[in-house]
Write a protein that binds this DNA or RNA. Sequence first.
DNA 1: GTAATATATAACTAATCTAGTAAGTAATTA
DNA 2: TAATTACTTACTAGATTAGTTATATATTAC
Lengths: 131, 131
Amino acid sequence: MELTRKAEYAIAILTELASQDSNQPIQSREVAQRRSIPENLIPQIVATLSKRGWVEGTRGVGGGIRLVTDPQSISILDVIELIEGPIYINRCLKGGVCQNERSCSLRRVWSKAQDALLSVFRETSIADLLD
Amino acid sequence: MELTRKAEYAIAILTELASQDSNQPIQSREVAQRRSIPENLIPQIVATLSKRGWVEGTRGVGGGIRLVTDPQSISILDVIELIEGPIYINRCLKGGVCQNERSCSLRRVWSKAQDALLSVFRETSIADLLD
DNA sequence: GTAATATATAACTAATCTAGTAAGTAATTA
DNA sequence: TAATTACTTACTAGATTAGTTATATATTAC
């Protein structure tokens, strides 16, 4: 019942980038150190953020990564789902598992609980995490 | 980010028992079949419910298990935490992981999201799941 | 009192997922 | 051309989960 660390790291990276007031690139290694993220993990996470179009990297001396999207437009939910794929607190919510999806009272509870959870993530943006 | 099946099965077992209008014991094997739970898994789950005092088993011919607690007083959260232990959607919430717990804005989001999730579970009882 | 029945207990296995490692590739600048 | 930095890919160790199997214990029927 835990979210993955990669998702947590991704949020941390984006928040760190958003906190750079100049939009100068910052080295991913520097980001890793500031946020206590294992350096080896940075590449694969940044690559995902990059493909999604939120982050841009420039290589070579003086290079680094920078945020190229308004941090207010990126929700925590967006980030989590980008890294982990769609979230289900229970397999029943994936659909196709069970016959009586419609009438199942337990399924309704899962659904309600999940909505409550995801709403918080949906309503929180990267910008909201800046101190 | 998924709850375990055992927790799901435990809820199903309790709900099935609660739906028996007479308080006659019903064979655990019968419960397993009705709720599509692998029969081999039943013993360990029932044992846990039994130790907790919600269920009582009687052995031998004509035996079975029965609910000995008001289903309205058992919340889904009680059951999940009995089976899985305390729930944390993120390790930060366990405490002792991070230095700046108090000031961490991300931690506040985890906390809020978890509260939203657990509230739903806390406010739903086994009795609520009866059709 | 013995056999059948049903729960209780405990140890084990296979499969999956997660976190992290490591090695090499590609682009940019000095 | 060498140094620097991001990008890509494959791999490994450990933990967790789901389920299996075997055995012990209590109760009833005969």
